[in-house]
């Protein structure tokens, strides 16, 4: 594990700070009283039953979803509401989606090089060179000139990770990155994520992969019905969950 800080004692300036966040979808109260701090270099895995609000929380962190009340700050700066400032912030927060969402009309290389070139104004040649290096890192350099539709799900997700990394983010958000994959492709993607964690990347991973959570997380957050129910170490969570709801969830998941 890369983290030198225990979850109990947060460093002076957390990278992510979530305070008193509420979110409603119409009459539906999906996030309730969320308080959360994430330190630099920390790997936080969010688990919980579907509908518990874990994906919504993840998407609120780069304002793909808006919150009803409360505050979210990234690196000490409150999330901007709209426009250029929000775009600038998003550029510093990488996101990987369940359904990859690669740009279908561009090659894998372009997918990775596009954002640095367009958003950060990196010269195209340099952006492409860096993209090639990233594709090598995630093991699909040979697919650089292919189109997303020509790749397997696992390869596409690795390309999507490379695309997010190309912006040199401070924080990576993974929203169920393996849920849409065939089982045999899950590990190739988790391996890439694990190696990122080993390199000290700060990340939030929403997942159902309990093995990964136990192996890679510094901290596990268990959510149910819009609340953070447990916020503890993996060992503590898996071996010694305090709440009934967490124990019920684990028994269901691990039974399979």
């Amino acid at each position: 594990m890369t983290s030198s800080t225990s979850p109990a004692q947060h460093p002076a300036s957390p990278l992510v700070s979530v305070a008193q966040v509420q979110k409603h979808f119409g009459a539906h109260h999906v996030l309730k009283d969320i308080d959360l701090e994430i330190a630099r270099g920390e790997v936080v895995v969010i688990v919980g039953p579907s509908g518990s609000g874990k994906s919504t929380l993840c998407r609120c962190l780069n304002r793909l979803e808006t919150i009803t009340s409360g505050t979210i700050t990234i690196d000490g700066v409150p999330l901007p509401a709209e426009g250029r400032a929000l775009a600038d912030l998003r550029a510093e927060v990488g996101m990987v989606f369940q359904s990859f969402n690669l740009f279908a009309h561009r090659t894998i290389l372009d997918n990775v090089a596009l954002a640095p070139h367009i958003v950060s104004k990196v010269p195209l040649k340099q952006a492409r060179a860096e993209a090639v290096a990233l594709l090598e890192r995630v093991g699909i350099a040979d697919k650089a000139e292919r189109f997303p539709g020509e790749l397997s799900g696992g390869q596409q997700q690795r390309a999507a990770i490379a695309r997010a990394l190309a912006m040199k983010p401070k924080l990576m958000l993974f929203d169920e990155p393996t849920s849409a994959l065939d089982p045999e492709m899950v590990s190739e993607v988790l391996d890439v994520i694990t190696s990122l964690a080993d390199d000290g990347m700060t990340m939030v991973v929403v997942t159902h992969e309990m093995g990964f959570a136990r192996r890679a997380a510094d901290r596990v957050i268990f959510m149910d019905d819009g609340r953070v129910v447990e916020d503890t170490t993996p060992d503590e969570f898996f071996d010694n969950a305090r709440s009934d709801r967490a124990r019920a969830f684990l028994s269901k998941i691990l039974a399979h």
Binding site: L64, A87, R90, M95, F97, A104, I118, V119
Partner: peptide, 15 residues
């Protein structure tokens, strides 16, 4: 145009 792709571009910081 895929809704997810538009979301991805926003997440990357595209205006």
């Amino acid at each position: 145009v895929g809704k997810g792709e538009i979301e991805a571009s926003r997440a990357l910081g595209f205006t």
